[in-house]
Simulated scan of single mutants.
Amino acid sequence: MKTILNIIWLLFGGLWLALGYVLAGILCCILIITIPWGIASFRIAGYALWPFGRTVIEKPGGSGVASVLGNVIWILVAGIWIVIGHITTAIAMAITIIGIPLAIANLKMIPVSLMPLGKEIVSTNQPFVSTYR
């Protein structure tokens, strides 16, 4: 079922969304000082291309002060606008019955799009390994 949803997602917006993140990543890498956001954009592009069967978690070991500061800058510069775009397209997708799972996937991307640093995208088939013992 995940594969069918991913193919439908790819055809109805996932490809364009992923290309947007790739272009943002290239721009960020060209500007050198914004390379961490460029790498995060490439990571999100892969997630935007094939979202079903994957989820976002916090990186083990904490994200650190640099990630928090970077996320604050990201929110102010681009994050809030990306979130507004995800919410708008999710509303448009949710109009049809077939689009409801796609809208949910779009909303599922909001946390990583809002604060990309310190996050990791993992397969939902992968068992969660806790760092706490």
Rank of each mutant, 00 (worst) to 15 (best):
S67K: 05
P101T: 06
R43F: 05
I44P: 03
P116Y: 14
M1T: 13
L10S: 13
I8H: 06
V56S: 00
C28P: 01
I80E: 08
L15T: 12
L107A: 06
G99M: 03
I44E: 01
S63N: 11
I8L: 13
N6W: 08
A48I: 00
L76D: 04
G14K: 02
F12H: 08
I80G: 06
V65D: 11
K108G: 05
G118N: 14
P60A: 14
Q126W: 12
I97M: 13
I110T: 13
A66R: 15
K59Q: 12
K119W: 04
E58I: 14
L5R: 10
A24T: 14
I91W: 08
I80W: 14
K59P: 01
S63L: 09
I4L: 13
A105M: 02
G25H: 05
M115G: 01
A45G: 04
Y47C: 00
V72N: 08
G64A: 11
G20H: 06
A24F: 10
C29G: 15
E120H: 11
V68S: 04
F12G: 07
V56F: 00
M109T: 06
L10F: 13
V65H: 15
P51Y: 01
R43C: 05
A18D: 01
M115Q: 05
L117K: 07
C29E: 11
L27M: 15
I32P: 02
W9H: 02
I97Q: 04
C29K: 07
A66G: 09
V129L: 11
L76G: 09
I8N: 03
G79V: 05
L5W: 08
I98H: 12
L102K: 03
F42W: 07
W74F: 02
S123T: 09
I100P: 00
L117V: 09
L5Q: 06
R54N: 08
L10C: 14
W50E: 03
V122F: 01
E120W: 06
A45Y: 01
I84G: 07
T34E: 06
I97T: 08
C28H: 10
K108R: 15
A66K: 15
P36H: 04
G79Q: 09
I87Q: 01
L31Q: 12
